[in-house]
Design a protein around this nucleic acid. Structure first.
Length: 428
RNA sequence: GGAAGGUUGGCGGAGUGGUUGAACGCGGCGGUCUUGAAAACCGUUGACUCGAAAGGGUCCGGGGGUUCGAAUCCCUCACCUUCCGCCA
């Protein structure tokens, strides 16, 4: 949620910033009006409550002395009725205000480019030069079949489309990648590893904003009212929901490997080939809780931390700064990392690194006690470090040799018993 | 799944329907003392919200009710603990 005080005090400025994201002036105006109504009602009911509290105290004293309290009780009963009436209206107004605020996205950082869709995104840098080799590169499905590392039809048999089975050397490679990524984050970047629940309750889904708006993208266990996580961001960020951290403990940096479950409602037909868009996939995620003064600097650090993974694997990728209209709802600033897939001839998004400023923290009610003794909202950031299926795809293509085998990057070999290649006979 | 008990401030733990935002202890912070530290002693120490301020309001698991007034009574939901059953 955005700060209602900011909206109230700098209405024009706020509305202008929101307009960059394609939000019309109606929503902020509605929020402003509801806020004004709310404060008027609040003042009214609180005055009456102060009156009642004082009178009730007096009634108690008089009653003890055996005095007559019937008239005072009758009067206060009427006051009580009036309070109930106002409180009912107040509850409605507050509910509407919250609903309205939840529909307003975060304010974009000033420096991010204009634009309402992906065409407005800016390439910040491209790292690693890709040169097409003399031989034809097989796409991941073709080479995967030769190597025997994917079984899509049996995934369909077990569950349905979008639930691939990864086999043999492929499974081993994936496990190696997970361990490599976690080790880089923990050993060299100051992260604490977490293994959270993969299923969460509705409060957690609401805390990070998946609910109520995106329920149809989630898998739901109705009997228990539990939800399968679409990203580790949900359990890891909610870890500090309703908590107050200490300034000296910031930044808190957590990383977690989890599977991710996404219904991808409405995406049927888009990029559905092979591993490119699936309902269940693995991902390593990084989440930061930081001091507000440092959040945008931390975002640059976070991007670097995700990039370190790709660099270590010797992959060609690019960094995009998303434009105002293409960012996720809660982000103030966001970078995407995209790997080049030479057989697909397209860039594949494997990481999205976002700074949410206080937007997510307000909803989570996650605060910290600053050195001045005041309790303030933290700033949160997260980024993938990184998503596995598309990483696998890019590796299978970028590291593919002429004979169709795949060169395993040096950094992964310790996790694969020294194996140097994926080959069709399964031998190194 | 069955039975019983519980849910109070950072933690432990009191609490009579009426100056109880909440005793007491621990912890935290500030101070006295000390060469320094410890101990001892003194003081202080929750969050949210409305307000320019003065000041007000709300919060004792969540929601609802009774009452002039609820941490305290009633209903309901959630969670936790223990015992029994089942089980990786």
């Amino acid at each position: 949620m955005i700060d209602i005080k900011k909206l109230r005090d700098n209405f024009e400025e706020t509305a202008k910033a929101l307009a960059r994201r394609g939000v019309g002036p109606e929503k902020p105006a509605a929020a402003r009006d509801l806020d004004a109504r709310r404060r008027a009602l609040l003042g009214e009911t609180e005055n009456l409550k102060a009156k009642r509290n004082a009178a009730s105290k007096q009634i108690g004293i008089v009653a003890k002395q055996g005095g007559d309290i019937a008239a005072a009780k009758e009067e206060m009963r009427k006051v009580g009725d009036r309070i109930a009436e106002i409180d009912r209206e107040l509850a409605t107004v507050e509910h509407d205000l919250r609903e309205t605020l939840l529909m307003i996205p975060n304010l974009p950082a000033p420096e991010i480019p204009d634009g309402l869709d992906s065409s407005g995104n800016k390439v910040v840098r491209t790292v690693g030069e890709w040169k097409d080799p003399s031989y034809r590169i097989m796409d991941h499905i073709e080479v995967g079949e030769k190597l025997g590392i994917f079984d899509f039809p049996r995934g369909v048999k077990l569950t349905g489309t979008g639930f691939p089975v990864i086999l043999g050397q492929g499974a081993k490679l994936q496990r190696a990648l997970i361990q490599y990524m976690l080790d880089v984050h923990c050993r060299t970047q100051g992260y604490t590893e977490m293994l959270p629940p993969f299923v969460v309750n509705s409060d957690s889904m609401t805390g990070t904003g998946q609910l109520p708006k995106f329920a149809e993208d989630l898998y739901h266990c109705q009997i228990d009212d539990f939800w399968l996580i679409p990203t580790a961001e949900v359990p890891v960020t909610n870890f500090y929901r309703d908590d107050i951290l200490q300034a000296k403990d910031l930044p808190v940096k957590l990383t977690a490997y989890t599977p991710c479950f996404r219904r991808e409602a409405g995406s049927a037909g888009k990029m559905t080939r092979g591993m490119l868009r699936v309902h269940q996939f693995d991902k390593v995620e990084m989440v930061n809780f930081v001091h507000p003064d440092t959040s945008f600097d931390q975002l640059e650090t976070l991007v670097g931390e995700a990039e370190a993974i790709l660099k270590g694997l010797g992959l060609c990728y690019r960094v995009l700064m998303l434009c105002a209209g293409d960012m996720g709802f809660s982000a103030a600033k966001c970078y995407d990392l995209e790997l080049w897939a030479p057989a697909e001839k397209q860039w594949l998004e494997v990481s999205s690194c976002s700074c949410f400023t206080d937007y997510q923290a307000r909803r989570l009610n996650c605060r910290f006690k600053d050195t001045d003794g005041k309790t303030k909202l933290v700033h949160t950031l997260n980024g993938s470090g990184v998503a596995l299926p598309r990483l696998m795809v890019a590796m299978l293509e970028q590291h593919q040799l002429e004979d169709g085998s795949i060169e395993i990057p040096e950094v992964l070999r310790p996790y694969m018993n020294g194996q140097e290649r994926l080959t069709s006979d399964g031998q190194a």
